[in-house]
Amino acid sequence: MWFKNLLIYRFTRPFSTSLEELNEKLSAAAFHPCSSQEQSSYGWSKPLGDAGSEYLHAANGCVMLCVKQQEKVLPAAVVNEVLDEKIREIQEADGRKPGRKERTDMKEEIVFDLLPRAFSRSRKLYAYIDIEAGLLFVDSASHKKAEELLTLLRETLGSLPVIPLKAKNTAQHCLTEWVAGAAPTGFELGGECELRDRADETAVIRAKNQDLSSEQIQSHLQSGMFVSKLAMTWTGGIDFVVDDQLSIKRIAFGDLIRERADDINADTMAEQFDADFSIMAGEFAKFIPAVIAAFGGEEVEEGAA
């Protein structure tokens, strides 16, 4: 359950839906397995799985949500193999080659026939709302997957007034400044960064396990390259990578944080989930303000999604 990535969104209006109403609306849009002819299914799942009875889990003013997606796995090579065989049969029987539209129709028919026998693949995506802070956190490195979750939550609630969390200062300028000079207060630079050329952003240099203060790295910056991704450590006990979109990835919690969770004598999976969630959310409540402060504070915008 410990988040490995963070995409963060700011509520432009206070989140006022009660837990009872929220649970009711989530359950109305609950996940159901794919039927024989469905290629995918997407809906809300219980964060605690079989150990829970609700479609949310609340702890210390935060509300955990979980979405589940199931997809039928139907490899294109399998479909194309069957299609090629049918085309050969038509050529041998009628002496003609099917046109584009006929081949498209045949392919759709093949998919329809094969779907009931296809394997299913499922994945879960977690997110939580910090009601007091007015923030929504999604455990994803993919903006597309996060937007899918937001779209479902918007449809479930009727509206979702959120915008991506933004900082006052340009992220790439800050990241470049830190590598060229020194990390902001409360942070340390890691040994990894990604550099891009201002004249051609397709030109990329990725440095791993490097001393970022080295002459080689500094010469790239002096030649006009900028830092688009940077590994850092928050002295509160979190290692992470942040990019120029303020996406936070590859989060690793320090031993002291993990030990606090391990020291809790949880008798059930539900109790352990609650403890882990409470500790994680508590750490993020300190970590995220520190990150935003390092980028010059939060840029406040009016509007809703």
Rank of each mutant, 00 (worst) to 15 (best):
L195V: 15
A167I: 09
A127Y: 05
L160Y: 01
A76Y: 08
R196E: 00
G134C: 06
S120Y: 08
E155C: 02
R196C: 12
L157K: 04
L74M: 05
E71W: 01
V111H: 11
I131Y: 01
A199F: 11
G181L: 10
A171I: 13
E177I: 12
E177C: 08
A127I: 07
R96E: 05
S120I: 14
R154Y: 08
K124I: 10
T170A: 12
L136D: 09
I205S: 09
L165C: 11
N80G: 10
K168E: 12
V73F: 06
T202G: 08
I90E: 05
S142T: 01
E201V: 05
A141R: 03
F137E: 09
E201R: 06
K168Y: 07
I163Y: 12
T170E: 14
A167S: 13
A76N: 02
A141I: 03
N80I: 14
R100Q: 13
K101T: 15
L115S: 02
P75C: 03
G190P: 06
A118H: 09
F187P: 03
A76L: 11
R154F: 03
G95T: 07
A77Y: 05
A146L: 09
H143G: 14
W178H: 02
I87K: 00
G181P: 08
D105P: 08
D130N: 04
M106Q: 04
L175G: 00
R103E: 06
F137H: 06
P98S: 05
V138D: 00
K72C: 00
Y126I: 05
L153A: 02
A127N: 03
E155L: 07
E132D: 13
K107D: 04
C174S: 12
E109Y: 07
E155Q: 10
E177R: 10
W178L: 02
C174N: 12
E147M: 06
R121Y: 05
I129M: 04
T170I: 15
D130H: 10
G186E: 06
E109T: 15
G186V: 08
I87M: 00
I110E: 00
D105K: 13
A199L: 14
L149P: 04
K101A: 15
G190N: 00
E194Y: 02
A76S: 10
L152T: 11
V73W: 05
R123K: 14
T185E: 15
K107M: 13
A183L: 10
I87R: 00
A171S: 08
A76K: 10
E132N: 06
L189P: 01
S120G: 11
V162M: 05
V138A: 02
R117L: 04
R123V: 11
